[in-house]
Amino acid sequence: MKFGKMKSHRRNRLLLVLLAIAGTGTAVGLVLMALNKNINLFYAPAEIVAGNAPVGETIRAGGMVVNGSVKRGKDLDVSFVISDLKSSEVTVRYSGILPDLFREGQGVIARGVLRDDGVFVADEVLAKHDEKYMPPEVADVLADAHKDKPQAGKTL
């Protein structure tokens, strides 16, 4: 596009269009920055451990289900630990049907209330899945290759 050759009124209109986009972009950007906390769908374990999540209010907590942490109680009671794969861990209690994709080593998002003692009592558990796809045979081969390691994805 030869900018210099454009007629002046067209160049003005082009600048006006660019200005409109830049202006709206700035406005929307500022709004999103102001609303940043509300747009995040869930609190990470680190935020909950650090005491940045409100206690006694309905919130969402998200993390990876720690391997070997799922304990079934009577009926549909279940408890498990979610972590950020670093140091922060939060115990979640739930009574109900878990989604099909719920498994150890996978990401979950739980909606519920954080108690004073740091236990998260969930009334809904959603399963996250990562962006990796592979055929079952490949996953089996990978699992055989390093049996001691979890086969599931690591991203949350």
């Binding site: 940043n36 747009i39 995040n40 769908l41 869930f42 609190y43 990470a44 998200g62 998002i109 959603l126 996250k128 899945h129 990562d130 962006e131 990796k132 796809y133 991203t155």
Partner: peptide, 11 residues
């Protein structure tokens, strides 16, 4: 990428 979300990141 910017926010915690239920939707996974791009493949």
């Amino acid at each position: 990428d910017w926010w915690n979300s239920l939707h996974q990141t791009s493949s």
